[in-house]
Computed example of a mutant assay.
Amino acid sequence: MAIRINGKYSIGILLTFTLLAAAMLYVFPVIYMMTGIKNITTFTFSLSRIALWTILLILLLYSKLVEKGPFLLKKENKFALSFSIKSIISLYLICVVGGALINAALQFITQEKMSDKLFELTSIFRNNYFLIIFTCFTAGAVEEFLMRGYIQPRIENIYNSPISGVLVSAILFGILHSTYGTIGQVAIPFFIGLVFALFYKKYSNIKILIICHFMIDFVSLMIMNSLDIKHLSVF
Rank of each mutant, 00 (worst) to 15 (best):
N157F: 05
Q111I: 00
R126A: 07
C136R: 06
I132F: 02
F119W: 03
A105E: 00
A105L: 15
F79K: 07
K75R: 11
L131V: 00
F79H: 07
I85K: 02
I124A: 10
A80S: 14
G98A: 06
Y62N: 09
N127A: 13
E143V: 04
F108V: 07
F108H: 13
S63F: 01
G99I: 02
A100Q: 12
E120V: 05
K68M: 03
V66D: 03
C136M: 13
L93I: 15
E120C: 01
E156Q: 15
N127D: 11
Y62V: 01
L73Y: 04
E67I: 14
P153K: 12
C136Q: 11
I94T: 08
S115N: 07
K68S: 08
V97M: 09
S87G: 01
V142M: 06
T135Y: 06
F108S: 15
I158W: 10
K78R: 14
Y150W: 12
G98R: 08
L106R: 05
I132Y: 02
V97G: 06
I158S: 12
L106A: 03
G149C: 11
A141C: 12
A104R: 12
I102R: 05
I158V: 12
I109A: 15
K78F: 02
F137Y: 04
E112F: 06
R154V: 02
S115C: 04
D116C: 00
F145R: 13
E67C: 08
A141E: 00
G99A: 02
Y62K: 08
I155L: 13
I89G: 01
K74N: 11
F83Q: 09
I89L: 14
A139Y: 04
P70I: 01
S63R: 10
I151T: 09
L73A: 00
I109D: 02
Q111D: 13
K64L: 12
L146A: 11
F79N: 04
K86M: 05
F137T: 14
I88D: 00
Y62F: 10
E120Q: 13
T138V: 03
K68Q: 14
N128C: 04
E120L: 12
Q107A: 08
T122V: 06
F134M: 09
F71H: 08
E67F: 01
I133Q: 03
V96E: 11
K86N: 10
Q111V: 00
A139Q: 07
P153T: 10
L81K: 13
I158M: 14
E156S: 15
S115T: 03
K86R: 14
E120M: 11
M114I: 11
I133G: 02
I155Q: 09
R148Q: 15
S82D: 09
V97E: 06
R126K: 15
E144C: 04
A100M: 11
F71G: 12
E144Y: 05
I155N: 13
M147L: 14
G149R: 09
G140Y: 02
E156I: 02
E144S: 10
S82L: 05
S123V: 09
F79I: 03
I94Q: 11
F83I: 03
T135N: 12
G98P: 06
E67V: 10
I133M: 10
S63I: 00
Y92E: 01
I89M: 07
